[in-house]
């Protein structure tokens, strides 16, 4: 009966927010606060609003490893968190074991083919978190959604078997795309992720990454 209720002492994090200027940012933060988020990782943002801690996140852009390396050198000092899209196996391997990279993510469902046990082990050694996006489950229908479920379930199995540090995100771009931590956990459970592991993915692990970066006082469990 307690499934919908989450421990209020936990801090919850949405790890991948894209904020455009086409809508009310104030409203976005109000909704995030109502839904129970305490920390947001937002691309190109910093500060604190509505009682929510915000950390700036930069997603590296580039078509190959050389461009990624160049951009990492340019932005590492500017951003609090650096995320790398696993565009190919070479980039994925480099990013996973690079201590200057905080998060690796998969820009489309096809890119999850690079997520295997060796990548997860490298990410653990490099103190890099793996981000799982639930976007295809929300935005696709029919066969595509079924395929997305299958791919993400396999990815979740690998992450759980290897004890990886991983996040779950809805990647909201507007307030109506936000989902509460409880909803993210409920959807994650459809991927075979146990409730406790799903809670860690939206709370404990993102805060662990912040602690590894030297931001104290966030992690409580």
């Amino acid at each position: 009966m307690q499934e919908a209720q989450l421990n209020r002492r936990l801090k919850f994090v949405e790890t991948h927010v894209h904020l455009g200027s086409a809508f009310s940012q104030q409203r976005f933060f109000e909704f995030a606060s109502k839904l129970g988020f305490n920390v947001l990782f937002i691309t190109s943002w910093e500060g604190k609003i509505n009682g929510i801690e915000v950390f700036s996140r930069i997603n590296l852009k580039g078509e190959n490893l050389a461009q990624m390396k160049k951009m990492l050198g340019e932005v590492r000092e500017k951003a609090e968190l650096v995320a790398v899209p696993c565009l190919n196996r070479e980039v994925a391997t480099w990013a996973a074991r690079n201590p200057d990279v905080d998060i690796i993510y998969f820009p489309s469902i096809e890119h999850y083919r690079y997520l295997d046990k060796s990548l997860v082990r490298l990410s653990y050694e490099g103190r890099t978190a793996v981000e799982i996006s639930l976007v295809p489950l929300f935005e696709c229908e029919g066969v595509k959604r079924a395929q997305a479920f299958s791919t993400l379930r396999k990815a979740a199995t690998v992450l759980l078997e290897e004890g990886a540090v991983f996040f779950i995100t809805r990647e909201p771009k507007m307030e109506y795309e936000l989902r509460s931590p409880g909803s993210l956990i409920a959807v994650a459970r459809l991927l075979g992720i146990p409730r406790e592991a799903a809670i860690r993915a939206v709370s404990f692990y993102p805060l662990t990454i912040l602690e590894w970066k030297g931001y104290e006082g966030f992690r409580k469990e």
Binding site: M1, Y176, S183, A186
Partner: peptide, 22 residues
């Protein structure tokens, strides 16, 4: 709960669902 969370619009109106209590 998961199903309710997946609803993103009703009659073309974007919506946000939240489960408050069971």
């Amino acid at each position: 709960h998961a199903g309710v969370s997946m609803i993103s619009e009703i009659r073309g109106t974007p919506i946000l669902t939240d489960i408050k209590k069971v």
